[in-house]
Design a protein around this nucleic acid. Sequence first.
DNA 1: TCCTTTAGCGTACGATCGTTCACTATCGAG
DNA 2: CTCGATAGTGAACGATCGTACGCTAAAGGA
Lengths: 197, 197
Amino acid sequence: MRRSAEAAQLTRDRIVATGVTKTSTDGLYALTIGSLADALGMSKAGVVGPFGSRAGLQFAVLTKAADMFIAAVVAPSMQVESGLPRLRVTIDLWCGYLDSSPFPNGCFVTAASCELDGRPGELRNLLLATVTRWRAFLREQIVIAQTAGDIATTLDADDLVTALTGIAMSANQEIQLLADATAPARARRLMLAAITR
Amino acid sequence: MRRSAEAAQLTRDRIVATGVTKTSTDGLYALTIGSLADALGMSKAGVVGPFGSRAGLQFAVLTKAADMFIAAVVAPSMQVESGLPRLRVTIDLWCGYLDSSPFPNGCFVTAASCELDGRPGELRNLLLATVTRWRAFLREQIVIAQTAGDIATTLDADDLVTALTGIAMSANQEIQLLADATAPARARRLMLAAITR
DNA sequence: TCCTTTAGCGTACGATCGTTCACTATCGAG
DNA sequence: CTCGATAGTGAACGATCGTACGCTAAAGGA
């Protein structure tokens, strides 16, 4: 049973990975079982089986995308000390993620936020938790840096979180829609300027 | 012929208005002829007829939404002189639009940007033109204000455009996804701070 | 080696998708 | 009043949607 269970897990991962790629360009609600089955060379039943339903598949895809964001931007920053050093590393990783993300069509979380913000349900709840944790992480590093005297306490932490996430969102639009190659560097410069003011 | 043509125009407007509302929550690609027909109490053929096809309907909806954004945020600002005065009025209108927009689910343009940025076609072209004109308008007012000595020339105009649009996008997420009622006021304060630095 | 479990396939279901077409009813022009 | 134009209806089409069910084949435990 173990060997086959491992194989099933690999299949599951393959389905989710392809689903994340398709969702990145078309959105979570355009993720259809049939097109995913075609892309994978599998039957529809084989694709949806491990997840029970299309909703389960969407949930797995969003979970995976959130994990990928954390793995790309947050996790590596944990190797440097908290506060300003970690914040600076995070900004570098963040802008690198915006420039050439693991998703073909820009920031998955931002796209999901626009797609899901008006559609109550488990998908929205999962996204809300992800965004809330991400913003809390940023805020925490800012406050630690302020306590250490590395960021001016005249700046409001919530204001900085809004400014930083905003710069990222605007840069994402400049990269994905406006095809502005200078956007990632500008975003990095603006983010660093925002916290060193 | 005139009377009936007017009636046809009213029907067209009614279809587009309902389509804009539905699209605001579900997205352009979830705008379905059947559901729109149900919402309007019309037949599917009657809904899609005036637009030739679903693609034509989507185009009309996006056009209308862009017009509504311009009418809400840009047009009224034309009554004050260009440069800093017009920019300040625009910021007020912009934050008011984010707070209680004519769309039920937040900034239509931002949502469309995320939905369309990876899908080449006429819809994307229309959106790209809209966003480009909007950013050019902001930049123009900034440059005029700088020429008049009302905004420091040490600030880069493109940087300011990125910062302002970013604040708006972040505030949009805070309002729509995070249900943060303080977001509009913070956005206004941050925008004004950005240009008076 | 046999037996149970299960990963994944193939098929079928009803519903809905976008589009087309014949038709009706209404309205303005003559 | 009559007639041509047209806004909108209703039915039908092939395709695709998500889901369910029976099946096959392979794999692990006995």
